[in-house]
Computed example of a mutant assay.
Amino acid sequence: MTFRTPDATDLARVAVLAALIAVLGLPGSFPVFGGVPITAQTLGVMLAGAILGPWLGALSVTILLVLVAVGLPLLAGGRGGFAVFLGPTAGYAIGWILGAIVVGLIVHAGNRRPVWWRTAIGMVAGGVVAIYALGIPVQSLVTRLPLGDTVIASLVFIPGDLLKAAVATIVVTLLVRVYPRGFRRQWRAAPVEERVAA
């Protein structure tokens, strides 16, 4: 996937997606085992990667996290400040950046038009697996709970995150059909079998 220098329109879209992630935190959160809350904000991370692509998606997440680090209460439950990155949620927050990259790389693989099945794979691989891959080890380290026990405890998040991945897949699939300009990219023609599957 080629990288181009972002222009003013790209940066405006980055800001909009960063704001969307923040807004998805407004309903609050539901703390569970280990102090890691269930929030809707990972849905925004998935959408950022899918709509903006891997690098601009990661940029939108990074901007949000920088604002959180300087003290703005933009995480679910009104959390903000650098202390967020020293607690059990730190790995998940940093994992959002990796998650957006993975989602974008898979959804736009080969610079092809997103199709529902590749989008679904991207949402799960980036929006769930990649975030957990960073989040769980850091949570284990901070809480001093063995890694295996932390993995088991984290299973409580799986149903909600899979639901968010499904919602994000539906949103992206609909956007591709009704407003493809929202993705602001030229797609290569997809192979025949991929067009049929779409």
Results as ranks from 00 to 15, higher is better:
M1D: 12
R4V: 12
P6V: 07
D7R: 01
D10L: 07
A12N: 00
R13E: 09
V14S: 04
A18T: 01
L24K: 11
L24V: 03
L26R: 09
P27T: 07
P27L: 10
G28C: 01
G28P: 03
V36C: 01
V36Q: 00
A40S: 11
T42L: 05
L47E: 04
G49S: 11
A50V: 01
I51P: 04
I51T: 11
P54G: 09
L56A: 14
L56I: 06
G57E: 07
L59I: 04
V61R: 01
I63C: 11
I63N: 00
V66R: 02
V66Q: 01
L67T: 00
V68C: 04
A69I: 00
L72M: 15
A76S: 15
A76Y: 10
G77Q: 00
R79I: 00
G80M: 00
G80S: 03
G81Y: 04
G81K: 08
F82V: 14
A83E: 11
F85H: 02
P88F: 09
P88M: 08
A90I: 10
A93H: 06
W96M: 08
W96N: 07
I97W: 12
G99F: 07
G99P: 10
V102K: 05
G104Q: 08
L105I: 03
A109Y: 14
G110A: 06
R112N: 05
W117P: 07
A120E: 03
I121H: 12
M123L: 02
A125H: 00
G126A: 12
G127P: 03
G127F: 02
Y132F: 15
Y132Q: 06
A133S: 15
I136G: 13
P137Y: 11
S140G: 12
V142F: 05
R144E: 14
D149Y: 13
T150R: 10
I152G: 03
S154L: 01
S154R: 02
L155R: 02
I158D: 04
I158S: 09
P159C: 12
G160N: 08
L162K: 09
L162D: 11
A165M: 07
A166T: 12
V167D: 09
A168F: 12
V171T: 10
R177Q: 14
Y179G: 06
R185G: 01
R185F: 03
Q186Y: 05
A190K: 12
P191N: 11
E194A: 13
V196C: 00
V196G: 00
A198V: 00
A198F: 07
